[in-house]
Design a binder for these strands. Structure first.
Lengths: 239, 239
DNA sequence: CGAGCTGTTGACATTGCTCAAATTTCGTGG
DNA sequence: CCACGAAATTTGAGCAATGTCAACAGCTCG
């Protein structure tokens, strides 16, 4: 229930030159002299809250960049247990492919707009404009480092540490238009639980405990305020 | 206690043309016509069992390819809890770097031989021989997919499922000189526990339980035999 | 205003952890 | 080749963090 679809689309949509996430996306490696080539191969798609973008194993023809909104990535076990492997925000690349299929499922959290590119066109782009591959490699490196950090969290942190790490991570990577000590959590408790390897009940109880300790305020389930950010950092680092 | 460097070194070491892991390493992207350039910038180092190769946060000047032996990657929490994020085998790339420092620690499991390259030389190689960057990107893609699979394991699988998945993974990626239904586990129970997000006691108990069920045989703690591989696969997929 | 989500809270069960001790493995030296 | 000691692994007993099942509360939307 934060801002969603109606606000977006200020600038001439579908215009790579004025795209406000280009500097964060792989497209940053495409110089202005080549944006026409980029422009020619991208299209845009809108997704509504909760909508599936693709499932793990779907044959992969397209890759995506997030234009607007937040996306969850996840993997499933046969019996339905789910692990959310990441949340993507505008500028992030979407579409890890192994053996011609998507390596994970992806779904829209709120309203989402994606910038789409045929895989074959990406391949052409990669050979035409070598810096794009360099850019993708750099982005992979960051993703890999984040994945390892998440393994540490999943394998070795307590529920409390998991929640605190998650909140601090969100805060650190916030688009800091305001230097606010608060964050939005557009995803559901189920998403958070599946991301941190917990149950929704444990997530909920832990939020409540942190609130009772005064480490956070919870005006509503999707907004967290930090009265004292350093206290939160101390709590997260401790044991 | 951890002196090194007296063993190993059988074949014409240091020869990229005859290197038997080149086809699996990033070097596969270097054509035979360029191996001289490769040869000029690599050197080799030996590590003895248990030796630290580098720690997370160490300033990173070098990257490595595993020539021989097995390496564990890990991240630590301030209080000493450890998450092993992966085991590397010959041909694998070692040296994920963020902000000029290694993003994880690395240690030798048994005796290890590394092929070393200065970071600056790698960068030159990347611009001189573009396919190397493509190769690195492909390898990153696979690593990322593996990392996501490991997140699923850490966050959502039971101890039993973790052990079974681990054993099957080892079996699948075995250098299949023999089509044997058995695997070696050169690492300690502590390494396995820290890799799977468990304690050594739980790892040990789970091995024992699987042995008592007849799913595996354990002639010694570092060798596992599968009397019926399909039964193991069924057990791993179930619930 | 009521239905249906989503989130919270409560009571209890269980998996996997902790602490402790026994046993096996393995390197080393005789 | 065998014996010894340290280290690794296994086993045991009890416990705690987190999961499960169930009820309740708060919002949103029609």
């Amino acid at each position: 229930m934060s801002d969603s679809s109606k606000s977006a689309q200020k600038a001439p949509r579908h215009n790579c030159d004025t795209c406000d996430v280009r500097h964060k996306a792989m497209c940053a490696a495409v110089g202005h002299e080549h944006t026409d080539q980029l422009q020619a191969i991208v299209s845009h798609r809108d997704y509504s809250p909760g909508q599936v973008i693709f499932e793990e194993g779907d044959p992969a023809d397209y890759v995506f960049n997030i234009s607007d909104g937040e996306v969850r990535l996840y993997k499933l076990l046969p019996d339905g247990r789910r692990q959310v492997t990441g949340f993507l925000t505008p500028g992030d690349f979407l579409g890890l492919i192994t053996e011609s299929s998507y390596a994970y499922g992806a779904g829209a959290i709120g309203a989402v707009e994606l910038c789409c590119m045929k895989l074959t066109n990406l391949e052409r782009l990669l050979s035409d404009i070598p810096p794009v591959r360099e850019r993708l490699l750099d982005m992979s490196r960051d993703e890999l480092a984040a994945a390892q950090e998440q393994m540490l969290l999943l394998g070795r942190k307590t529920a409390r540490e998991k929640i605190l790490s998650f909140l601090l991570y969100r805060h650190k990577h916030l688009d800091r238009t305001d230097s606010d000590a608060s964050i939005d959590l557009p995803m559901s408790r189920t998403d958070i639980a599946d991301y941190l390897g917990l149950t929704i009940e444990t997530v909920s109880r832990t939020f409540t405990a942190l609130r009772d300790e005064g480490l956070i305020e919870l005006p509503n389930p999707h907004h967290v305020i930090f009265p004292d950010l350093d206290a939160v950092r101390d709590a997260a680092d401790a044991a």
